[in-house]
Design a protein around this nucleic acid. Structure first.
Lengths: 219, 219
DNA sequence: AAATTAATTAACTGACCTGTTAGTTAATAT
DNA sequence: ATATTAACTAACAGGTCAGTTAATTAATTT
């Protein structure tokens, strides 16, 4: 929709659209397999183009992978979480909103977490370094950490370690999605990924974490 | 030490030892890459034998993978957690011990979690199904869930959903290790995987979760 | 409408990777 | 000591995969 496209989508050839389609297919492939086990042939097949197209738009599989990483982090993650907005709220309100947004993001962008995890496990974060070291990322996580620091300072949260707590909250939010495919064998019956159970998961995490950080002596 | 070995270890050829060495190397390789991206050649090299040895002891890469899965789950995980023992304790004590054991297991068997995660993401739990459906696994997780149910029934835990809470606790315990390689770029300085910080992580999770599940109305 | 440029494909190359085979060396039994 | 079995290796076969090349078709410009 950015370029000149009279009727859009009706074009047979559309560089922008093809590039995006490749990124979309690559995102799905990398989410399932990570950089190493992902197959360019498979990405091309999912896109509906020839493998050569990948190398027309991207230098290499590695280059495509980095493009996917950057797009999903800056495009999807940061936009969904909106850390800046949380600064206006009280620590409790901000924390609850953060949790709800985090889980909603996991649910609506199911590739985000798998890609990050594969990157950590397979490549030790090598390709993620420049993303997470960027000013935008540092600032965003600074804001998140400061929500907890503010809570402690204001006395509504108990004395806790902000960075550890941020990680533990992320763990509680994410594990449900990460481990779903294994967990389904443990507690059968329940359809673990239905909107209803995700809503229940959200409420459980909110209750657990807010009770977990609240200062009992205060009030 | 099981077979007849006068001076043990001094043998040049030792089937049992070689098989175990292959399993060890495979465990490390699968933990980093998962089934699909793991290379048999690499496993052989790590073991210090020829690739053909893998096929002497195991039918296929898949077969070796399943052997690794079973060994690490039944051998390492179940032995470390000892769910049966937790049944004797009060819900609070049991829950704290469970958390401490879970994290200690993650720390001392760093391959366990990565393998499980890769299995979920890459293979949708296909090769884990028979493991988690087994009586031993079902019973163990039943015990864990029942700790929470007991706590709710006895009134020391607030009204919570046991299965969701088990997952959220596991998430808080595991995420620290899973995401470490990415997280190190966010909060530099601190050596995130030193014994000291792992101890701190443990205490933070214990504090967070116990406060999070405790019933405030009850005393 | 013809010429030019951009998007796309088919077919290929060379490296790599799983699994095999046939032969070799060490341990064990006779 | 010799024969037999068990553990192990070197070398290879066949398939797969990342990346390339040369030709083709669609869009754009003149």
């Amino acid at each position: 929709m950015a370029t000149k496209a009279g009727k859009a989508a009706k074009q047979v050839r559309d560089a922008e659209a093809t590039r995006t389609a490749i990124l979309d297919a690559a995102e799905a492939e990398f989410a399932q397999y990570g950089l190493n086990a992902a197959k360019t042939e498979e990405i091309a097949a999912k896109t509906g183009v020839t493998k050569a197209m990948i190398y027309y738009y991207f230098k290499s599989k590695e280059d495509l992978y980095v493009a996917v990483l950057e797009r999903i982090f800056f495009g999807r993650y940061m936009d969904s979480i909106q850390p800046e907005e949380l600064e206006q709220l009280s620590p409790e309100e901000a924390l609850e909103k953060l949790i709800r947004r985090q889980i909603a993001t996991d649910f609506h962008h199911p590739h985000l977490n798998p890609i990050q995890i594969h990157e950590a496990l397979q490549n030790q974060g090598k390709y993620y370094k420049h993303v997470l070291s960027s000013d935008r990322a540092q600032q965003a996580f600074g804001i998140v950490t400061r929500i907890l620091e503010r809570g402690v300072a204001e006395g509504c949260f108990r004395k806790l370690h902000p960075q550890h707590t941020v990680m533990n909250i992320m763990g509680a939010c994410n594990f449900y999605f990460t481990a779903y495919e294994n967990m389904k064998y443990l507690w059968q019956g329940a359809p673990l990924l239905s909107p209803e159970t995700v809503e229940q998961h959200t409420q459980e995490v909110v209750d657990l974490i807010l009770a977990g950080v609240r200062n009992q002596n205060n009030r």
